[in-house]
């Protein structure tokens, strides 16, 4: 009696289930396809490489997603209880081998393919002439330090750190190399020139994140982590903190400005003048 009652309801439930899965799949794919919410355009070379890898991954996962969800919807509707007899089979080794090999090739191949985008950022260091900028995270601000005309970063001492007196990174005034260092709450870089970031933190772990650069790197206390990029499109871009760093995490925010080389040199001069 129980099974008969279930049988009667099965067609409508199966239909509802299949329709919902189809609807969910279509809407999801549409929003991805139409890029309703999407990445901002990339402004660096490897950003484009990463976007290409994103596209490949979207394609593969998209096909698998649609096939699996619609396959499930089809099976649910087609094999609903409408009085038939269930078939009897316990498996199929050939098919198991085929789909195991297929997924190995697909997934591992995709992973190997991603090597290029990763290697560009991480396996190789910055070229020798890159502009070095030291990025320091602290609760809850970013500070950026340029070496200035002498090209050398001055000494820093933890005990000299004092945000209130205008020495947020603890520059040691007795070191001549630190005299011309520029410390700025925003980061300005020249377009088309390679920049090497030296990322560090004073207190807890933060993460330096610029969407348009497709770049995110934890700032880990006790470590100096080197990253490099070449931004090509002038403009202002937001910097967010991406690693939970305390109650002000959500407002740890700064700006990256990419400007033409000439403008950048002028900016640097102005900063040095203000420093004197």
């Amino acid at each position: 009696m129980l099974s008969r009652r279930l049988e009667r309801g099965s067609t409508s439930v199966a239909l509802a289930f299949a329709v919902f899965l189809t609807f969910m799949t279509v809407v999801t794919v549409y929003i991805f396809w139409a890029k309703v919410w999407w990445f901002p355009p990339a402004i660096s070379d490897f950003g484009h490489e990463i976007d290409a890898q994103f596209a490949r991954t979207f394609l593969i996962t998209g096909v698998v997603f649609v096939a699996a969800q619609l396959g499930l919807a089809y099976a649910i509707f087609k094999f609903r209880d409408h009085g038939q007899k269930a078939a009897y089979f316990e498996g199929n080794n050939t098919m198991e081998i085929i789909w195991t090999l297929a997924t190995i090739v697909l997934f591992v191949g995709l992973g190997l393919y991603a090597r290029n985008a990763w290697a560009e950022v991480h396996f190789m260091g910055a070229a020798p002439g890159a502009l070095q900028i030291e990025v320091t995270g602290q609760q809850f601000v970013w500070n950026f330090r340029y070496a200035g005309p002498d090209g050398k970063f001055g000494r820093e001492k933890p005990e000299l750190v004092s945000a209130s007196t205008g020495n947020p990174v603890g520059l040691d005034p007795t070191d001549p190399a630190s005299k011309d260092d520029i410390v700025s709450p925003v980061i300005v870089v020249p377009a088309g020139r390679e920049v090497e970031l030296i990322i560090r933190s004073q207190d807890v772990t933060h993460s330096f994140y610029v969407r348009e650069l497709r770049l995110k790197q934890d700032a880990v206390p006790g470590m100096e982590i080197h990253m490099h990029f070449t931004a090509t499109v002038p403009g202002d871009y937001e910097i967010a903190c991406a690693e939970l760093c305390g109650l002000g995490h959500y407002r740890m925010h700064s700006m990256l400005t990419v400007m033409p080389e000439a403008d950048f040199e002028k900016w640097e001069k102005d900063q040095e003048a203000a420093n004197q």
């Binding site: 099974s3 279930l6 049988e7 309801g9 099965s10 439930v13 199966a14 289930f17 499930l72 099976a75 649910i76 094999f79 609903r80 209880d81 038939q84 007899k85 269930a86 078939a87 089979f89």
Partner: peptide, 8 residues
């Protein structure tokens, strides 16, 4: 599921 007799 394939070829089965599914109750919901």
């Amino acid at each position: 599921l394939w070829g089965g007799k599914i109750t919901f």
